[in-house]
């Protein structure tokens, strides 16, 4: 059994002025090295959940544990935030400094990391996200995807165990989205950092190890992308997209073709079609 990184226990949350809770009875676990996508439409409560995971918000009901530390515990606040690094939606609104290198150092400065160690970690973090060449650039000259990579480097320099990305690709173009997604995937694979990837893009969720679908503040579906996406009707009811190929497979099955319901990608679909229609089979 792998080490647990995040655990929420029957978490509930209501905004001050709101009548209804945004989150109700949410219990989930994220393990070491896992890449978990949290999928939901706007207003489903997924962003609130993200902010509960590094003590930006405290739960109204239930508890949130990050690396076995309760987020209610003031004493561990900085430890929790250092361990669960967060990347936000708007690339512009999370860069503090006027030079890339200094922005990456921001978290380390706050933690009081000693100078030489800071320089080492900043260089390493910039290298990990492929932004070394831009170390001395002004953030406003970068593209959206590059800005998000700087934000990732800023989190990475704090040597976190978990990265939480709160709709970090929704303001980017397709190239920027791929750039950011690949960067985080790489960190997950190479450094074993757990990832909580919050999104409303089905294509991105399809790349995760596990998908949790949130709607109206509750967990509606949970499982591997294949398990989740084969529930075409349910996803549509939750106002979410279904992968094109999965939907196509469902249509073909309706027409009596015995095609697998596990198809997600174009290549998988091509293999299935070849298997079914080639005369040799």
């Amino acid at each position: 059994m792998k080490t647990e990184r995040i655990r929420t226990e029957q978490v509930g949350f209501t905004y001050e002025e709101a009548k209804h809770p945004v989150l109700e009875d949410v219990s989930l676990k994220i393990h070491e090295g896992e890449f978990v996508a949290i999928l939901g439409h706007n207003g489903s409560g997924k962003s609130t959940l993200a902010k509960l995971l590094n003590a930006l918000y405290l739960p109204e009901k239930g508890d949130v544990f990050v690396c076995d530390m309760n987020t209610r515990d003031d004493q561990h606040l900085w430890d929790i935030r250092r361990n669960a690094g967060m990347i936000f939606q708007n690339p512009d609104n999370q860069i503090v400094a006027t030079v890339v290198r200094e922005d990456v150092a921001f978290g380390l400065e706050n933690l009081g990391v000693e100078h030489d160690e800071m320089v080492r970690r900043v260089d390493e973090a910039l290298n990990s996200v492929g932004m070394t060449d831009y170390a001395d650039a002004s953030p406003h000259t970068l593209s959206g995807g590059q800005k998000q990579r700087v934000a990732i480097a800023g989190v990475l320099a704090m040597e976190p165990r978990i990265i939480i990305a709160d709709e970090s690709t929704s303001m980017l173009d397709p190239l920027g989205r791929a750039e950011v997604m690949n960067t985080v995937r790489g960190l997950n694979r190479d450094k074993g950092i757990s990832v909580v990837w919050i999104t409303h893009y089905m294509e991105e969720a399809a790349m995760a190890d596990r998908v949790i679908v949130v709607s109206d503040g509750k967990i509606e579906l949970e499982g591997t992308p294949r398990q989740v996406f084969q529930q075409v009707d349910k996803l549509r009811k939750l106002h979410l997209d279904v992968p094109h190929m999965t939907a196509l497979a469902a249509e073909l099955r309706e027409q009596g073709i015995p095609i697998s319901d596990q198809v997600l990608t174009v290549d998988e679909m091509a293999e299935e079609v070849l298997r079914l229609v080639c005369p040799s089979n």
Partner: peptide, 19 residues
């Protein structure tokens, strides 16, 4: 489009079943 590829695959499938 999705409809076109669906119909194309259906056609292939029917041809195979006929054969």
């Amino acid at each position: 489009t999705q409809e076109e590829i669906r119909d194309a695959i259906l056609r292939l499938w029917k041809e195979k079943v006929h054969a």
